[in-house]
Design a protein around this nucleic acid. Structure first.
Lengths: 141, 141
DNA sequence: CTGTATCCCGTTCGATACTG
DNA sequence: CAGTATCGAACGGGATACAG
């Protein structure tokens, strides 16, 4: 057995982890719903189909680039459907697919935990920051 | 009322959205659990307390910097507790707090959806990529 | 053993301009 | 109306070296 440095072993492990990342279902889902705009798009479509321009207005602040990119990814994953009506000007509607709709309860569970426990988290942060600033005082000359 | 360009209106909305980002509980939670290493740390600690070096071995591929950074964030949010045993060398144990433990069912829900539906997602991606490559053919000279 | 500090590269995301 | 193309700034995250 050849000797390897700690760095080489970590590097080896990192490669294995990258492969794991690419296949782990949970990781893939987390990458999707953790995305900056995905949650808002899913929520906006939960009430029914919307046109591109409608989404752009509903989700104020999103750039055309990011809205398009987000919709493309969701469409590719089968969570959102895109239907084009050939007219002048063209009309494009986006809607949740059944698969996309099945994700809503999960999003709701996340939302519920967040709204139920956010106060505890905020309090914990405040306490932590308080402790930290206190300890910095002690270490002064 | 002064006239504003579309770009100015988007900019205005973006600022409002940034403020929203900072306060929305769901967004905060998503930012946390969507983090690259948080899921693995939480999972590793679900079975019981672990030392820093233990986590480093369990979660192969993580750098010391990212492990420390992840643990600090989780500790600050009150999801993980950190206890130092003063000896030589020092020993540090990490464990889930009750708050952290309450998050496990949510993570499980995410995991369940992912494992149940990943095949549909993969199939949708394959179908989408197939369509795309087909359409690129049509557009050739 | 358990971190902290620094550098640096790749990716992400927004702004802007242009197209069918 | 519904995008596409390009560019630059900001940020995450890894390698490395150092410290209590």
């Amino acid at each position: 057995m050849t000797t390897r440095t700690a760095a080489q072993q970590r590097e080896q492990a990192r490669i294995a982890y990258d492969a794991y990342l690419a296949t782990c279902p949970t990781r893939q889902l987390l990458d999707r719903i953790g995305d900056k705009w995905v949650g808002l798009v899913l929520t906006a479509l939960a009430d029914g189909p919307q046109r591109y321009s409608g989404l752009s207005r509903t989700i104020a602040g999103v750039s055309e680039k990011m809205l398009t990119q987000t919709l493309r990814t969701l469409e590719r994953d089968g969570l959102v459907s895109r239907s084009v009506t050939l007219s002048v000007p063209v009309r494009v509607d986006y809607a949740l697919t059944p698969l996309g709709r099945s994700l809503l309860p999960v999003m709701q569970a996340i939302k519920d935990w967040a709204e139920t426990h956010i106060d505890e988290v905020t309090a914990a942060r405040a306490a932590y920051d308080e402790r930290e600033s206190g300890e910095r005082q002690e270490h002064l000359p």
